[in-house]
Simulated assay, not measured.
Amino acid sequence: MKNVIFLLLIGLFPRLVWAQLIGPEVPQRPPTELDRKIDTFLQASIDMVRQKLLNPSYAGTPYAATAPTPGDVLALNLAIQFHNQGLVNQIIHYYNPTSNRRIQPADPTTLLATSDSRPGPTAPPAKAPFLSHVSLLYGVQLIGKGSKTTYKSGTSTTRMTYLEIPAYILYNHDLPSNKGRLFGGIGFYLAYGLWGTIKDSDNTPSVSAFDKNLGYKRFDAGLAFTTGYQLPQGLRVSLAYELGLVNIDPIAGDYDKLKNRALSLNVAYSLHKVTALVKKK
């Protein structure tokens, strides 16, 4: 019997101590429409891409005059994006469930004396907190990358298609009089190379861009920056820049690094509105 009591105390003691430390469980409020609000966009882009050659081993040597010069090429980008405007507020209310029930007292200096029965003026609403302007933008896209490199003997054009997952933290500023929204933010991307070619100007057969012996690494990742404007009707126009951080050249020396760069002009529109237009036709 003593052993049974001892085992019960061992099992109950941590729970009793934990309950004293954190207190009773606070009931969570049900999710609101704002918490569940996710706008879905279909985005098309024109990208100016290149492969940036960093720290070439021949820099400052007599071979520098024959160094290849990477140039820009145009590529296309098609994406589906999800703009979550309620997740940040949901996280705030999860850790502070009473925040949405706080009553802001009226400022006595704004109250006027009156003899009629109509309600008097109330305090002006407090300025919206910073985090209420923050949202998450993420999605999946097919993006073209590559470069047109000029050598002494000719040119070589590389075109690659990646499956990419970008994610941004955005700050949104709604313009007055319902004139739209400005936004901008920073994020990251993860990408995996699907297919591509390397074509030389001497009419030799093209080579797979991700060939095990002559091609590039399939994995890519880096930082991403974006800024843009959203019309009241939902159309979004933005610029984005991807700064690759992964050396995609598997045969580069200790000092040579080749990294992707991409500048995108993006146009996005609500996927729900696009499907509605298609159904009407």
Rank of each mutant, 00 (worst) to 15 (best):
F183L: 01
F183D: 00
F183E: 00
G184K: 07
G184C: 03
G184R: 08
G185H: 04
G185D: 04
G185C: 09
G185E: 03
G185Q: 04
I186W: 05
I186A: 15
I186S: 07
G187C: 06
G187S: 12
L190Y: 02
L190N: 05
A191N: 03
A191V: 05
A191F: 03
A191L: 03
Y192P: 00
Y192Q: 12
Y192A: 07
G193D: 05
G193Q: 01
L194M: 14
L194S: 08
W195Y: 12
G196L: 00
G196K: 00
G196M: 01
T197A: 08
I198S: 04
K199M: 07
K199A: 13
D200F: 09
S201F: 04
S201C: 10
S201D: 10
S201V: 09
S201E: 09
D202T: 12
D202I: 14
N203T: 09
T204S: 15
T204W: 06
P205E: 11
P205G: 06
V207M: 14
V207W: 03
V207F: 04
S208R: 01
S208V: 01
S208N: 15
S208E: 14
A209G: 14
D211K: 08
D211V: 09
K212M: 07
N213A: 12
N213G: 03
L214T: 08
L214I: 02
L214Q: 13
G215Q: 04
G215V: 04
G215T: 05
K217E: 15
R218K: 15
R218P: 11
